[in-house]
């Protein structure tokens, strides 16, 4: 009983909202995030730190692109593909964007079905999310292979400013790593949902705390963040 009281504290108390709520939450000399479990709060704080990491990459990209005297390669042409005799600009990147957005959609629904304790649907939607994620990484591997064959290196490329290559590999590589880690964790969480670990409140092997369906929501937060970062990479690196 004590534990369930800890994981859901203050839910029954009447709490002020708005600005007064913020002041009350932070000044209460207790935990600041009243109705948020430690797991979710820590995931949000991790995502904030990850935001800074990706911001640093994108800002260094901006700095090198502004300060170079050599013309920047045109991403629209660099990432064009010829399909059936028609050359389409950026088409692979556009497809990757749609794949990642679709994975976010299935993930959002998995969270809801998890809370409804519909574990078959939740697990299947998470597996679909993982499949979309793996597809995305596969397309990225294809894109890297194509560019490396065309002579793009972190120190040089055939079209212009040398910094293009280093920025490209660093930013998309770091993002692809995030997607890969996400796919692995999605598979682990989907397996737990499928087995019914969260219905039986099986203790986790690492934290030894009782499992519940919030794990799916926390997993979802990470996955949506990966999609969110891609929105910014797509806008700044590929479209700008």
């Amino acid at each position: 009983m004590a534990e369930s009281a800890l994981t859901d504290p203050g839910a029954t108390l009447r709490q002020p909202t708005g600005w007064q709520g913020i002041a009350a939450d932070f000044s209460s000399d207790q935990r600041a995030f009243k109705n948020v479990s430690w797991g979710k709060a820590m995931m949000w704080i991790f995502l904030l730190s990850d935001t800074f990491v990706f911001s640093c990459f994108l800002i260094s990209y901006m700095t090198t692109r502004i300060s170079t005297t050599v013309p920047w390669p045109n991403p629209s042409e660099v990432f064009a593909l010829t399909i059936g005799g028609v050359t389409l600009p950026l088409i692979l990147i556009a497809i990757m964007t749609f794949v990642l957005i679709s994975s976010s959609g299935t993930m959002a629904m998995a969270v809801t079905f998890g809370y409804r304790r519909d574990r078959k649907k939740a697990a299947l939607l998470m597996l679909a999310t993982a499949a979309f994620g793996a597809t995305f990484v596969g397309m990225q591997a294809f894109e890297w292979t194509k560019l490396i064959h065309e002579g793009v290196r972190p120190w040089a490329n055939p079209w212009g400013a040398a910094q293009f290559g280093s920025n490209f590999f660093m930013i998309t590589g770091f993002h692809g790593t995030h997607v890969t880690i996400g796919v692995i964790f999605l598979l682990i969480t989907a397996r737990k949902v499928w087995r019914g670990d969260f219905d039986r409140e099986t203790r986790g092997f690492f934290t030894s705390r009782k499992g519940n369906y919030e794990a799916v929501e926390i997993m979802g937060l990470y996955w949506h963040f990966v999609d969110l970062v891609w929105v910014f990479i797509f806008a700044f690196f590929y479209l700008w």
Binding site: T17, I22, F33, K34, S104, L228
Partner: peptide
């Protein structure tokens, strides 16, 4: 970009339904 990011954060990440203290902290 801003519209997409806003939709993902607000709806998919449930930020619209979180307590204001967490929203501002992030």
């Amino acid at each position: 970009m801003v519209l997409k990011a806003g939709l993902i954060i607000a709806v998919f990440m449930h930020m619209a339904w979180e307590r204001l203290a967490l929203v501002y902290a992030i």
